[in-house]
Structure formats: structure tokens, C-alpha cells
Amino acid sequence: MPDRSMLLRVEHLRKVYGSATGDVEAIGDVSFTMDAGELVCIVGPSGCGKTTLLKCLAGLLRPTSGIVEMDGVPVTGPSPAMAVVFQEYGRSLYPWLTVRGNVELPLRHKRLSREAREKLVTDALDAVGLGHAARSHPWQLSGGMQQRVAIARAVAYQPEVLIMDEPFAAVDAQTRADLEDLVRELHTARGISIVFVTHDIDESVYLGERVLVLSKSPTWVQEDLAIDLPPERDQITTRALLRFTELRTHVYDQIQRAKRGETAAAR
């Protein structure tokens, strides 16, 4: 890999859930690497173990075998270099805290001066366009705004990589478009590395620089596709590009194949 340094390395990751009725192999054998500053989307058919994979990456689940490495160090538990944005914003934000309190909470145990902490919080809230809502409670905000709070909390934590688990699955289409552009902006303007898990093919192509297509469970990487769209993306013009259509058709095809259990097709 030229010039960019490797950030995340996943090798032969396998996860088996033991249960009374027999073991369930959620992830078969997943390997990929990610460089610093990349935005990688992970798509796959529903029930393909996307969330399991993400929890293994974030150190919330222990893989059965295989390696997850962050900056060359094995991930054995939640790491300060990672921040997660969950799909269920309503259950991920604490309703008894204000918006500001929620964003500030993960910073409390970081050894920061009061001013530095406040600056991080204010800065993160401004970055998601919620500077004016700092004193509200999450439940006073719309769903899209609540997810912005969750993103601000992750940004303020200053992780090396932001891990997002189908973050916009529960918001309406217009809000979703706004939030997608917010993610693009955080990525391009702030250079944040992002792993974005989604089941939405259009979303993965629109957002990503790379799309990893997962197979159905037990999961492996069906295809690692580079998205050669220009870095400046726009909801209308980008989605109207011929190349966008080709890429999304290709990913769609791959997912259909994955559902049928076929291996990768020739491009």
C-alpha cells in the first residue's frame, strides 16, 4: 500500500456462537485491512453477521479465532482508538443527561483540563450542527438530531477510527441524505477514518472509497471493491453519474450472488 499507513488489520476472523441447540457460525473467515484516513463501507445480505463483525472490530465481542489489530496492537477489548455509533440512537444516548452531558461523558476519564474538554464538546457539537441544542435533552430532539448527538459524542472522543453500525437505518430518507453528507464531510474535512456498516447498497457506494461485500453467513469477504468516484460527492450529481449506476449494479449483483451462496463473479 502506498504512502498511507495501515490502521486496521483483520485476519481470518471467525466467530461461533455456542448455544444449547448447537453452535452457530456467524462469521466464517473474514480478512481485510484498512488504511488510516479511509472510509470503508461494509455491505451484505441481511443476517450475514455485519453487527457481529463490527462488535468484534470494536472489541465488544471476542472472536472465536483470528486477529483484529489496531495500529499493530491486537484488540482485546474496547479501545480508546475507536468510537462506535450504534443504530439505536434512542437506546445509546442517556435520556437523563443533556446533549452536552452525553457528549461529555466519555471524556470524563480522559485526563483533560476543563477548558480542553469543553472545547472538544463544543467543537464536536458545532461539527454536527447542534451547537444550539447543547442544553436540550436527547428526547426533545428528532431522530436525525439524536443520531447527530451520537456522532458528536464519537467525534469528541477523538478516535482514530469511527465505527458506525447501520446508523441511519431508523431515520427518514431526507434526514438520511443529510446525515450521509455529514459523514462525508467529517471524513473529508477532518480526515476521520470510518468503517460504515450498512445494508443499503446505494448508501455504501455513495459514501465509500471502498466497499466490502460480505457473503451470507458463515461470512467471508465476497468482494473488496474500490469506488472510483470523485471525492467531492453530491446527493444529486454523484448519484446521477453513469459510474455510480454501474457500481451500484455491480454491488447489487454481488449481493444477489452472495444470497444464493455463489462465490465472486468476474468484474
Binding site: 462506535v84 445509546s92 476519564h109
Partner: peptide, 10 residues
């Protein structure tokens, strides 16, 4: 999910 959030932010 609230617990997992607390876990992930250590």
C-alpha cells in the same frame, strides 16, 4: 445498548 455504549467508550 446503553451498557454497550458505556463499554465501547470505556
Amino acid at each position: 445498548v446503553m451498557s454497550e455504549t458505556a463499554d465501547s467508550f470505556r
